[in-house]
Nucleic acid binder design. Structure first.
Length: 586
RNA sequence: GCGGUGGUAGCUCAGGCGGAUAGAGCAACGGUUUUCUAAACCGUCGGUCGCGGGUUCGAGUCCCGCCCACCGCGCCA
C-alpha cells in the first residue's frame, strides 16, 4: 500500500471514520491532528477534548473508544497512545517513515501529492505588486511582491490554477504634468539609462513649472483632458511611458523570480466603470451624497456613516470604482473561484467596504461572487520604529535596496569563501542577498509590521536565508565528495533501516513537510513554511554533526545518503515555493 | 471622538478552533574540529504572556474594563 502524502490528514480522516464506526456523533468531530512536540510522538489529536465537552463525555474514555475503533492499517503504521486529559498521540513506526521517504522521493511525487488537495481544479487570482507607472518601485512595494509571489506558488503547488495579475496604477492625474514635461524636456540619453529616474525628473519638472506658472498648469490640465478624451498623440506618449515603466519593473521582478500572467491596470477598466455606476444605482446601493456617488452600509457600525465613494464629485472614477469593475471582470471573464489582494494593512477598511459592496451587488444581480480575501501585511519599519525611509526622508528605491543586499552578501561571501572565483562569489552573493531580503520578509507573520535590519537579515545563524542555503550547499558538497547525484537510486540501494536518534529525528521532520505546506497555504501565511524549513535545516545540521554520511559500511552509507537526498529535495522544494533560488556551493 | 491592529525572555519574534511543563533565534556564559563546508553542533542562563476582573476541567488564546503604541476614518491609491 502506498504511503499517504500528508500523514496528519490521513490520521484526521482515520479518527473521523473511527468515530462513525464507534457509533459516535461524528458529524461535528474535528480531530485536529497536528504535529506534536517530539516528547509526545509525531502527531497528536487535539480535537478529542472539545468533542467530549460538547457531548458531555469523559475525555479519556472517548479517546480509548476512538483508538479501539481505528482502522487496522493505522495501527500497522503507528503506535497509538492516549495521554494526559485525553490526547491521542501517534508515533510513526520506522517502516512507515521509510515507506514515505521511498514514495515521495522526487519533486514530481511531492507535487502530485500536494496537488491532490482541496484547491485542485480551482482558479485563484493573486493581485499583487501593483506599482504605479512612471515611478520607481520603492521599499513600500517589497512586501506585496515577495508575499504575493510566495502565495501564488503555494496555491499552484496545492493544485490551483493560479493567475498572477499586476494591477498597475497607469491612469492617474499625474499624467497631465508628466506629458507636458515629456514633450518639452525629455532627455533621451537619461531615458535610455534609467527610464523611471527620467520620468520622475520630468514629473517633478512639470509639477514645479505648474506651480510657478498658472499658464503651464492650464496646459498640463489640457494634456490630461486630451489623454482622457482619447487624443492619439497623448495616448502614444502615455503608452510609451507605460511600456518603458513595465520593462523597468520587470528588471526588479526578474531578480525576485516574478512573472505575471496578466498586467491589467486601471486603464483597462476605463470603459467598464459606467456599468458599475449604473448597476449599483439601479440596485439601490449607491446614492448621491455631497456631489459624489457613494455606498453606505446601514447595518455596519462604521460604514453606515463612513462612505465608500465610487464616483468623485468631479465625475471621475477612483480606485473603488475600478476595484468593483475589476471584480466583475475577474468573475465573468476569468471565472475565478477566489481572488486574493496582497495589499498592506492600512487599506483594510477599503477592502472591507469593497467586499461588502460587491457581495450585495452580486446578490441583487443574481451573480455568484468568488471568494475574496484581503491578504494584508504590516509596514516595513526602520530601526527607529517608523516607516523605513532614507536619511533624507525619501522612499528607499527597491533596485538600490536589492543592490545593497547583493553588495553586503558579496562582502560576506568573500570573507567566508575567498578562494572561490570572483564571478562565482558574485553569483552566490546574488542568491544569498536577494534571498535574505525575501526570507526576512516571509519568515515573520505577514500581518505584523517588521523591522528591516541588514545585520539580522544577513546573519549566518538563526532563522535566515543564509542558514537554510548553507544546509543545502553542505548536502550538495557531500554528494560531490561521494561522486553521486542526489536522489540517484544507485546511491541509495541496499539502505538499511534508520537507526540512530539523529537519523530518526530527521526522518520524522521530513514527513511533516506536507502539513507545513498545508498550514501555510490554508492560512495564506508563508511563515509556517519558513519555520518548518528552519527546523528541518536544524535537524539536518544536528544529524550532519552526529552521524558521518560517507562511512565505509555500504548499507549505513546508503541510508544516510537517502536522508541527505530527501532533505535536499524538501529544502529546495520549500525554498522554491517561497520564491528563493538555491545554491550548490557557497 | 469612533474604529482597527498590536503589547509574550535584555533584543527580534513564534504560539493553527481554548489544550500537555509558554517556545525559537540573537545577545551572555561554558563546551565541541586529525573526520563529508565550524556560515556548524551541544549545553547553561533567562518569563507577573501590558494591568485588573470574568467564563471553565483547562486561558498567552475567549468576554468586560483600563493603560500604552501604531494605523485608518469624504472625494490619493
Amino acid at each position: 500500500m502506498p504511503a499517504v502524502f500528508n500523514p496528519a490528514r490521513r490520521l484526521d480522516e482515520a479518527l473521523q471514520s473511527a468515530a462513525a464506526s464507534a457509533g459516535l456523533p461524528a458529524a461535528d468531530f474535528a480531530p485536529e491532528v497536528r504535529p506534536a512536540d517530539a516528547q509526545h510522538g509525531d502527531f497528536q489529536a487535539n480535537g478529542v477534548l472539545p468533542f467530549a465537552k460538547r457531548h458531555r463525555l469523559t475525555p479519556r474514555v472517548l479517546a480509548n473508544q476512538l483508538v479501539a475503533a481505528l482502522p487496522a492499517d493505522v495501527l500497522t503504521d503507528c503506535t497509538v497512545t492516549v495521554a494526559g486529559p485525553g490526547f491521542i498521540n501517534f508515533t510513526l513506526r520506522t517502516g512507515a517513515l521509510a515507506a514515505w521517504l521511498q514514495d515521495f522521493g522526487t519533486r514530481e511525487a511531492l507535487a502530485a501529492g500536494a496537488a491532490a488537495g482541496p484547491l485542485a481544479g480551482q482558479i485563484w487570482l493573486v493581485d499583487y505588486s501593483s506599482p504605479n507607472t512612471a515611478k520607481q518601485m520603492h521599499v513600500g512595494h517589497l512586501r506585496s511582491a515577495v508575499i504575493g509571489e510566495a502565495i501564488a506558488r503555494l496555491l499552484a503547488f496545492g493544485g490551483a490554477r493560479v493567475i498572477r495579475d499586476n494591477h498597475i496604477g497607469d491612469w492617474g492625474t499625474q499624467f497631465g504634468k508628466l506629458i507636458w514635461a515629456y514633450r518639452r524636456h525629455l532627455d533621451a540619453a537619461a531615458l535610455a539609462r534609467d527610464p523611471l529616474e527620467e520620468f520622475e525628473r520630468l514629473y517633478k519638472a512639470g509639477n514645479a513649472a505648474s506651480e510657478a506658472d498658472p499658464a503651464v498648469l492650464k496646459e498640463a490640465q489640457q494634456e490630461l483632458v486630451k489623454l482622457q478624451a482619447g487624443d492619439a498623440d497623448n495616448l502614444a506618449v502615455w503608452r510609451h511611458i507605460n511600456e518603458v515603466s513595465l520593462a523597468a519593473f520587470q528588471e526588479i521582478y526578474d531578480r525576485l523570480g516574478i512573472r505575471f500572467d496578466l498586467t491589467l491596470g486601471e486603464s483597462f477598466y476605463n470603459d467598464k466603470v459606467s456599468a458599475v455606476y449604473r448597476e449599483l444605482t439601479a440596485a439601490d446601493l449607491a446614492a448621491e451624497s455631497q456631489g459624489a456617488l457613494v455606498v453606505f452600509h446601514p447595518e455596519h457600525p462604521r460604514f453606515k456613516t463612513q462612505p465608500f465613494i465610487i464616483r468623485k464629485s468631479d465625475g471621475a472614477a477612483n480606485y473603488a470604482t475600478t476595484d468593483l469593475a475589476t471584480i466583475l471582470h475577474r468573475t465573468e471573464a476569468l471565472h475565478t473561484d477566489g481572488v486574493l489582494y496582497v495589499v498592506g494593512k492600512p487599506q483594510a477598511d477599503h477592502f472591507e467596504q469593497l467586499f461588502l459592496t460587491a457581495k450585495k451587488w452580486f446578490e441583487k444581480t443574481g451573480r455568484t461572487l468568488p471568494r475574496l480575501a484581503h491578504v494584508d501585511f504590516g509596514t516595513v519599519l526602520g530601526e527607529n520604529g517608523k516607516a523605513l525611509k532614507t536619511r533624507t526622508g525619501d522612499n528607499i528605491k527597491l533596485k538600490e535596496l536589492l543592490a545593497e543586499a547583493e553588495a553586503r552578501a558579496f562582502t560576506l561571501v568573500s570573507e567566508k569563501s575567498g578562494a572561490l572565483p570572483d564571478a562565482e562569489r558574485r553569483a552566490i552573493a546574488s542568491v544569498v542577498g536577494i534571498g535574505s531580503v525575501q526570507y526576512a520578509d516571509l519568515a515573520q507573520n505577514r500581518s505584523s509590521d517588521y523591522v528591516f535590519a541588514w545585520d539580522k537579515m544577513l546573519a549566518l545563524d538563526g532563522n535566515t536565508a543564509a542558514y537554510l542555503l548553507y544546509a543545502v550547499a553542505r548536502i550538495h558538497s557531500i554528494f560531490r565528495k561521494a561522486g553521486a547525484t542526489p536522489g540517484d537510486a544507485a546511491a541509495e540501494a541496499g539502505a538499511s533501516a534508520l537507526e540512530t536518534p539523529a537519523e530518526l529525528a530527521l526522518a520524522r521532520k521530513l514527513v511533516k513537510f506536507p502539513d507545513a505546506v498545508q498550514a501555510a497555504t490554508a492560512q495564506l501565511r508563508p511563515h509556517f513554511l519558513c519555520l518548518y524549513l528552519f527546523e528541518l535545516a536544524g535537524e539536518y545540521s544536528s544529524f550532519n554533526t552526529a552521524d558521518k554520511v560517507l562511512v565505509d559500511d555500504p548499507p549505513v552509507r546508503a541510508r544516510r545518503l537517502l536522508l541527505c537526498a530527501r532533505t535536499l529535495l524538501i529544502l529546495e522544494t520549500g525554498l522554491g515555493l517561497l520564491g528563493l533560488r538555491t545554491l550548490q556551493r557557497m
